[in-house]
Structure formats: C-alpha cells, structure tokens
Design a protein around this nucleic acid. Structure first.
Length: 639
RNA sequence: GCCCACGUGGCUCAGGGGUAGAGCACUUCCUUGGUAAGGAAGGGGUCACCGGUUCAAAUCCGGUCGUGGGCUCCA
C-alpha cells in the first residue's frame, strides 16, 4: 500500500496503481466530480496518472488557483483540436503553458493566422468544450506512438517523439477524437475549462532555432470560470495603464524620435529622475570606496580585439572610422577600466581598486527586440569593476551584495531573488579556476546567510555570476543587478600586481551593476510606481496652487520659501479654478499640493493636500518646508 | 533579422478613391472661483516617407522607415 498524507494531516492508504481520481472517489462522489487535478509532494499529477509512491497529496477543484495550470493545459489541446477540425491538413507541433496564465500551440500552417481565424477557432473551441469529453491518459510504446503519428501525417510529432530520451514513458492524451503526444497533466473533463480566449498569433521558429522553418503559434488563456477570465482581463488592463511607454510621454519624462530608433530623449522631468538615480548610486558607492572614472566613447577596434569583444560581441556593436582608422563605440566599460588599471604598476597594497563609471554605452540591438526604456540601443549602466586579489573576492562580493540589497530596499522592491549562475558548457579557463570562483561566490552568499537559487550552467563564458531579480508592484520580476567574476579580461590585458612575494600576479576582476541600466530601471520604476514616484525622485515635488489671482503674490512667497530648502517646487499661475489645478497636479502625480487662498494668506499657512488624496489641512509654511526636506533627505517612500 | 498588426493635428482616436473630423491639450477673452475638468472664441494636420495604379490617393498596390505583439537575443 502507499500512504497519502492529505492537507489536513490525515493519512489515506491506497493500493499502488490507484489514480488520484480513485482517491477522490473514495473521499466522496462530489469531490470526484469536482476534482480538476492533484499534486504529490508539490508536483502536479494528472487525475488519471497511477500513483506509485507515498507522499503529501492534495486534490484541486476549480476553486483552487492551482487548477489553472491543468485547465490551461487542457485548453491547449482543445485549441489544437479546434484548428485540426477547421483545417484537417494542418500539422500540429506542440503546446506549452508557462505558468503565466497563457498557453500556446504551434502549427505547420501555410500562412499566418488572422484575427478572423482566431475568432473562428475560439468559437470551435467552445463547441468542443460543450462536448465535455474526458481527458484520457494512454501509455503507449515508442514504436506504436511513432506509427500512430506517422499514419496521421503528424510529421512534426514524429520528430518530437525522437527527442524524448530513451527509457522515458510515452504517454498520449485523448479527448474525443483528438490525440496528442503529451506528458500531462490535464483536467478531468473539457467542461472544467470554463472560459477560453485566444490572444494573438505569431510566427515562431521550429524548436526556437532561427535556421529552422517558421511555424505559426497561437497564444490563448483559459480559466475555470468566466469570473476568473474577467479578473485576468482586468489585470491586463491595469498593467497596461502602468506601461512606461504610455506614462513616460504623459508625464513628459521622455520621448523617442524616428531619427534615433530605440534611443530615448529625456525631457527635463525625465532627466531629473535620471540624475537623481545616478546621484543616489554615486552616494552609495563613494561611501564604499568606489572611485568614479570617465572613459572614452569611441575606441580603436584593436582594443576590442584585445578584449575579445570583436570576436564575441561584434554583432552588437556600432563602428565608425576616422583618419583611416577603425573605431568602435563602446558597448561596455570594462576594457577602458583595464586600460586605466594598466597605466601604473600595481602593488597588492593598492588592491582592491574599484572603478565606477556612468559612461554612455551603445549596443546595436536587432530591430525587433527593442522596447521602450527597457531595451534600448544606448544606455548608462551603474557600472563598476573591481580589481582584487583572489583572497579578496569573497569580501568584495559580500560588500556588493549588501550594497545592492540596500539599494533595492530604498525603492521598496520586495522579494528580491538571488541566483548563482555557474559554469556554462561554452567557457574559457581552467576548471580549477572555475571551482575557485564558484566557491568564492557561494561562500560569500553563505557567509552572509543569503538565500539563493542555483542556476547551474548559466554563467557568463568568462566567469560565474550572481544575478538579482526584483518583483515589482504587480508581481512581475525583472533582472537588475549582477556581480560577475572574470579571470579572462585581466589575462587578455596582461594585468598584474606585485604580491608580497615580490612576484607578479594576475588580479581578479569583478563586474558589478546594481540598478542594471538607468534607462531600464527608470522604465521599471515607472511601472512599479505607476508614475507616482517617491518624493525624492518626483520631478516636481510640490506645487503651490493659488485659489484665485488675488493670492498670486502669497503663492510666490510660499514657493520661494519651499524652494529655499532645495525642493523642486512650482506655482500654478494659470487662470483656472482650484479644482482644475488639483486635478492636473493629481494626474501629474505631484506628491504635495499646497493650496493658498485668503485664509492661508492671513495666517501664513498652506492647505496641504497629498497625492494620495489625504487632506492635512492648514499647516504653517515652515512645517511643510521642513517635512518635504526631511522626506527628500531620507529618500522616504512615505509622503 | 524573422512572422503578424499598426502609423490621421501635442495626446487619444473616428473616417476611408473626389480636395481632412471629434474630444482633450494649446492661444485669447470673459469669469476670481476653496480640493479631480467654469464659459466663449480661435489657431493648428502636404493623413510616416518614397514610388505605382487612377481623371482623382490619406484611402488601393509595392517598397522604405518607425512602433506594437511574438520568435531569437539581452542591461
């Protein structure tokens, strides 16, 4: 017998080979009917998958959000079924759902799917759901599967089958007449897919390889109920309302022009934020012993041969020529920092040397991949390179990790995920060096008792790295900072220091970025805050709003008093009513609104209204000035 | 770069072979108003660009550029 521990702690014994559906039926017929899926020790299990071991067991019904993955996986098959019914000659490739409330399915189809096609397919899917077929699980031999799909003319499936490692069980899932090669898990019945919606279609490369033929992919989403679908639509709309590409121009932060694709123009207000971010990073890293350097933009191509960028990164670089010399616009700062390092004889006593650089970088990005501020062709990294001895790596890394976490805290990002990426297959350098480097990074994290996930094989070709991911206000994660060990560039540039033994040694280089790029970070921050920046970043921190023209002089006086603290304050002198100006300030997300009318003028006060709608009433001007100055100085998230 | 869609005044968008429309924004005037849009008048667009079809193109066709959603890649 195998023992299943249910969520309430009770243990249920069942015969090996029983399915979750059997277990549900044992508990009760209603549960058996409502069950959508199950999990064993946290791993999803199909209701019709025979159980072969004991463990923590849980059944999901349509009330559990975990049922969504089962439902979407089944919707994916229904999508493929619908397409096959409409176009029997189409070949199906495979579907996938990525736990993001979306699923997809790829087809070998002679043309692109149109919006009308999607409507037809969606309607057909609804018909299929009404048939309420069960999702049947069938184990089959590799040979039988190959023959089956070959006989059906599903050539892509036959190829997919060949990719499944020997020894792995081959399973099919059937509903009605539709059969697919699939490892599951699925919902119990079609009717459990309560709501489906197709989102978009696009061409994709077969198996993701650009040299392969292009297939047609359809994306959709599905939920157990229409209510969940409505909530999903609502969530998408809210996310769109935060889109920095919409908010940026609305708040007059930045724009783009066709003459410089993917190169942002920062308007005065955007430049304020940009510079505040740079100043913040500068302040933090100066305190930790980083020295800022300023290095050239355009350097001889020879340099990029030395660094290896010409061979490994040329596709992403801009080139130019002058005086019959070939130059490249820098895509990274590291080579210039190596050049500065090599201008003098370094002693172990000089190390670590920490160069920080806010230099402008240019990278050629293929036209289809750029996007708003998050993927641009010119940007500024909050970049730094540390040159140190191997013994110093751990403490340097530790310091960087702590700096980076402190910085994210300031913005109120929660759920920072740290990943340690280790040696990739394609790499340079001796394995002993990798052992040492990976151990140093892991040791640093362990010493500080920092939790991290291991991302084996995902390191840079020159060294392992620690990546930082944050989660924004609506749950999306973004990769920001990175700490990378590099034994490669020091060698290429012949960098050395004189050790205490009088011999020359090679320093280790550590690449570091905290915000990542200022541009991308600003984009993320706009979406995280929906444009309502913390006061220290707000382009206009306070606006003085006179009730009528009679109060203009007093408004100017208030302005001057607040401005004397260094705060960015404006007066709204326009010939409009109070409500109009309040609304305008709200839409511009100005943190503080200082309303001045006859009453305030008499008492030397302002009526203080906050961006969050809070009305703090009449307050002495000096108090307001002090409050604003304090919040700014603290980089407070509070208004 | 590849697949698809889109590109009309500063913004959001309507229109669609016969000589450009709305709302918001902007300007001026009236109004001096107490916490999310007071009123009136006015200015503003060679409909992304280039070429083709046509008596006639913003509208149809082709190309280019740009943007968006995917693929691939990535800070």
């Amino acid at each position: 017998m195998i023992e299943l521990t249910l969520p309430d702690g009770s243990v249920r014994e069942v015969a090996p080979g029983s399915t979750p559906l059997d277990v549900a039926a044992q508990i009760g017929p209603r549960l058996a009917k409502a069950a959508v899926g199950a999990e064993l020790d946290g791993a999803p299990v199909d209701l019709r998958h025979p159980l072969d071991r004991s463990g923590a067991f849980r059944l999901f019904t349509d009330r559990d959000s975990e049922a969504g993955d089962f439902i979407r996986h089944s919707a994916e098959h229904v999508l493929a079924d619908a397409v096959k019914r409409l176009w029997p000659e189409v070949e199906i490739d495979a579907g996938r759902q990525d736990h993001s409330e979306k699923y997809q399915y790829d087809f070998r189809f002679p043309r692109a799917f149109t919006a009308e096609d999607l409507e037809r397919i969606e309607a057909k899917m609804r018909e299929i759901l009404k048939e309420d077929s069960v999702f049947e699980r069938v184990e089959i031999s590799r040979q039988e599967a190959a023959e089956l799909f070959a006989s059906m003319g599903e050539n892509l499936k036959v190829e997919r089958l060949e990719d499944i490692p020997e020894g792995e069980a081959i399973t099919l899932y059937k509903h009605g007449d539709f059969v697919d090669l699939c490892r599951g898990p699925h919902a119990q019945r079609a009717s459990q897919v309560g709501a489906v919606k197709l989102l978009e279609a696009s061409g994709v490369y077969w198996k993701g390889d650009e040299s392969n033929e292009m297939l047609q992919r359809i994306y959709g989403t599905a939920f157990g109920s229409q209510k969940e679908m409505d909530e999903y639509v609502e969530r998408v709309e809210q996310a769109n309302a935060r889109d920095h590409r919409r908010l940026g121009p609305e708040l007059d932060l930045f724009s783009f022009d066709d003459t410089a694709p993917a190169n942002p123009f920062f308007h005065p207000k955007g430049a304020v934020i940009y510079n505040e971010l740079v100043d913040f990073v500068r302040e933090v890293q100066v305190a930790d012993g980083f020295d800022e350097v300023i290095t050239p933009q355009i350097l001889d191509v020879d340099l990029w041969h030395t660094s290896g960028h010409y061979d490994n990164y040329r596709e992403n670089m801009f080139f130019t020529a002058a005086d019959e010399r070939q130059f490249a616009v820098k895509p990274m700062n590291c080579p210039t920092h190596c050049l500065i390092y090599s201008t003098g004889l370094r002693s172990y006593r000089d190390l670590p040397i920490r160069y920080a650089d806010f230099g402008r970088l240019h990278r050629y990005e293929r036209s289809g991949v750029t996007s708003g501020l998050t993927r641009v062709r010119t940007f500024c990294q909050d970049d730094a390179h540390v040159f140190c001895t191997p013994e110093q790596v751990e403490s340097e890394v530790l310091m960087m990790v702590s700096m980076i976490r402190g910085i994210y805290d300031t913005f109120g990002f929660e759920g920072t995920l740290i990943e340690l990426s280790t040696r990739p297959e394609k790499r340079i350098g001796a394995d002993e060096l990798w052992d040492e480097a990976e151990a140093a990074l892991a040791a640093a994290l362990d010493t500080a008792e920092i939790e991290y996930e291991l991302n084996a094989g995902d390191g840079a070709f020159y060294g392992p790295k620690i990546d930082f991911q944050i989660e924004d206000a609506i749950g999306r994660s973004w990769q920001l900072g990175t700490v990378q060990l590099d034994y490669f560039l020091p060698e290429r540039f012949g960098l050395a220091y004189v050790g205490d033994d009088g011999e020359e040694h090679q320093p280790v280089m550590i690449h570091r970025a905290m915000l990542g790029s200022i541009e991308r970070f600003m984009g993320i921050l706009i979406e995280h805050t929906a444009g309502a920046f913390p006061i220290w970043l707000a382009p206009v921190q306070a606006v003085v709003i006179p009730v009528s023209e009679k109060n203009l002089d007093y408004a100017r006086k208030v302005h001057d008093e607040i401005a004397a603290t260094g705060a960015r304050v404006k007066v709204d002198l326009r010939n409009e009513k109070l409500g109009y100006k309040i609304r305008d300030a709200q839409l511009q997300k100005v943190p503080y609104m200082l309303v001045v009318g006859a009453r305030e003028e008499e008492s030397g006060q302002v009526a203080l209204r906050l961006r969050n709608g809070e009305d703090l009433g009449a307050t002495p001007v000096a108090d307001v000035a002090r409050r604003i100055a304090e919040r700014i100085a603290e980089r407070s998230l509070e208004l």
